[in-house]
């Protein structure tokens, strides 16, 4: 049986697994943005927190993914549902690029722009929302893009704790020494990653501020 007919025959399964995968990654990214961007902003406001915040995110990033899923399994509320656990683990991986790029984006703004905003009598909030965030949006988005591609890959490991997703095919294929099964997980995952990369890249370019 060739690959094409294999894909065709299992298209419903593959489709379901792909949706699961998107759900895991999407939820994780949403959480990571909601947590990471404010943390990044916090770092630019309270420099002394920089080492602990970026340091922790860095440590999370270095834990091997299979091990992280394993570590989180016995945690009470988390271990109850596999997808809950997987989403949290993925969020941890996605945080670092998002925090780092938020800080870099805000730090990269021309100091004269921030100073004139201040001199015009803008409040800290106004400076953040009207000046700093719009001007760093594309850099933040570049972080989201890196994090998304990264998490799409790591999310295949989520199948190891029963969270589903495209990893299911890969693990099954490994167990059964079946290349076609492995590819049924790997190819859609790669397509997802490339698509996300392309779309977010386009968005990033559209939002890039013009240089003065």
């Amino acid at each position: 049986m060739n690959l094409a007919t294999f894909f065709l025959r299992h298209r419903d399964e593959i489709f379901r697994a792909t949706l699961e995968h998107i759900w895991l990654v999407g939820a994780a990214m949403l959480l990571a943005v909601v947590i990471g961007v404010p943390l990044g902003i916090l770092v630019t406001r309270r420099r002394w927190l920089s080492n602990s915040i970026l340091g922790s995110a860095n440590v999370a990033e270095t834990i091997p993914s299979l091990a992280l899923f394993g570590f989180l399994l016995p945690v009470p509320w988390l271990g109850e549902r596999a997808d809950r656990l997987a989403i949290l683990a993925l969020t941890l991986y996605a945080l670092l690029p998002i925090i780092r790029n938020t800080v870099a984006g805000i730090d990269g703004i021309d100091p004269a722009v921030r100073e004139s905003a201040k001199a015009m009598g803008m409040t800290d909030r106004q400076i953040l929302f009207q000046v700093e965030l719009p001007l760093s949006l594309s850099t933040v988005l570049a972080g989201v893009r890196v994090a998304t591609v990264l998490t799409i890959g790591i999310a295949t490991i989520a199948a190891a704790v029963g969270a589903g997703g495209l990893g299911e095919f890969i693990f099954r294929g490994l167990a059964m020494v079946n290349d076609q099964l492995i590819l049924a997980g790997a190819i859609p995952a790669a397509v997802l990653a490339l698509t996300a990369d392309l779309l977010l890249g386009l968005l990033e370019r559209r939002l890039r501020p013009v240089k003065a």
């Binding site: 021309d110 004269a112 722009v113 100073e115 004139s116 905003a117 201040k118 001199a119 015009m120 009598g121 803008m122 409040t123 000046v131 719009p134 001007l135 501020p209 013009v210 240089k211 003065a212």
Partner: peptide
Amino acid sequence: IALRRRIGYVIQEIGLFPHFTIERNVSL
């Protein structure tokens, strides 16, 4: 904030907001 709103400041480096039109820059 109140102090700065009473004082117009022409900054040496100009410091216009690159993401605002001239209209929005002036009307800030």
